[in-house]
Amino acid sequence: MAYPSDRKYTKEHEWIKAEGKNATIGITDYAQQSLGDIVFVELPKVGAEIAAGKAFGTVESVKAVSDLYAPASGTVTEVNAELATAPEKINKDAHGAWMLKITLKNPDELASLLSAKDYEKFVSEEGGQ
């Protein structure tokens, strides 16, 4: 799997794509593969504050419950409502099926996240995909 280089990644398997102060967040293809069939997503509401490294929601597959961790701090401006009724879209296209759009509190936070290349290396060591 080639991970898009237009975004950054966390070791908890979220991605974040920033354009200026605005950013989009989702989970990685590796995450959706590890989870299996995703059947439930719980996301914060528009206006909620999320904090880097802290849980902001939950994703559940048939078998597993997993917390979602914020790659960066900010205020939620948009939530992908489609995922409430069609969570399987994450399995089909994890890098396209975004979860949140946020206004970044501090865009510098992204500097500490993994590049696509580093993330790919990280998951190949972690799971041997």
């Binding site: 069939d37 048939v62 078998k63």
Partner: peptide, 9 residues
């Protein structure tokens, strides 16, 4: 599960 064959669902 067998993800390449279909997965749990």
């Amino acid at each position: 599960e067998y993800p390449s064959a279909g997965g749990i669902i």
